[in-house]
């Protein structure tokens, strides 16, 4: 395949950054998007140029490390798929492809396509945990959980924290990520002791990090490679109202 890539190049956090065009030839349609970037980088290195920096780790679609806004859509054109699991056969021969980093104040660019997502870690630190001592895995039947709750909690727990929701949101909000955590832990008996503190302090951390407010546009759930549903944001709002207006938070 012949491709024209327009990639965001930025030397460091202080650099202004710009789109740079690269022509690629002879790319296998069976290559993954990241493998295609590997090919480009090998060429750049042999030519003595700086390779394009991008995040990746497992390349199996489960770690949440890869990112990239491809042609205006986080993780590219294929639904429910991370960039690492996206293949070049989803593109047309001769296509011009724009590749950009996640854009958000809370995700500052480190270099090229790499952004700093530690604002998500700070949100987890502010409430995305349970304080019960866990030890070794307990007997599965010792804490019964209704099947429907278990299923919904699992659906929310599928979030890999990649940040595509923020990248897609016209408001730059992380409500889907936040909702996934609040829903996941709030449906489990183990998550109850911190339930009302969790939602308030995680939302405070979210706002302090500089994420925007949710206006229910629904872009996040479409971009989410794990298909986290918008219901988690409704749950987030409900728990927040119960905690604050409802006076559940001590």
């Amino acid at each position: 395949m012949k491709l024209t890539l327009r990639i965001w190049r930025q030397k460091g956090p202080q650099d202004e950054g710009r789109m740079v065009e690269y022509e690629l030839d002879d790319i296998s349609p069976d290559a993954s998007f990241l493998e295609m970037l590997d090919v480009l980088n090998e060429r750049l290195i042999t030519e003595g140029e700086e390779p394009v920096a991008f995040d990746h780790d497992c390349r199996e679609g489960i770690c949440g490390m890869c990112s990239l806004v491809i042609n205006g859509t986080p993780h590219g054109p294929e639904r429910m798929t991370t960039t690492c699991q996206l293949h070049m056969r989803k593109f047309k021969d001769g296509e011009v492809i724009d590749v950009e980093p996640w854009r958000a104040r809370a995700f500052p660019v480190v270099k090229d396509l790499v952004v700093d997502r530690s604002s998500f870690d700070r949100m987890i630190q502010s409430g995305g945990y349970i304080t019960a001592p866990t030890g070794t895995a307990p007997e599965a039947h010792s804490v019964p959980v209704p099947k429907a709750d278990a299923d919904h909690a699992f659906e929310a727990a599928e979030c890999i924290g990649c940040g595509a929701c923020v990248a897609a949101c016209p408001n730059g909000s992380a409500a889907l990520f936040l909702g996934a955590k609040v829903t996941h832990l709030g449906l489990m008996p183990q998550g109850q002791p911190e339930r009302w503190d969790r939602v308030v302090s995680m939302l405070e951390t979210h706002d302090e990090a500089g994420f925007g407010g949710c206006t229910n546009t629904g872009e996040c759930t479409v971009a989410c490679p794990k298909g986290i549903p918008l219901d988690v944001i409704s749950n987030l709002n409900r728990d927040f109202l119960k905690a604050t207006v409802g006076g559940k938070k001590k």
């Binding site: 965001w8 042609n71 016209p170 408001n171 407010g213």
Partner: peptide, 23 residues
């Protein structure tokens, strides 16, 4: 306030055409 927060939350805009995929 939501619009102002949205503007502040994305200081650098997308260069490519940002697609809307939802609703």
């Amino acid at each position: 306030s939501l619009a102002r927060r949205a503007r502040a939350a994305r200081p650098v805009k997308y260069q490519g055409k940002k697609k809307s995929n939802a609703q």
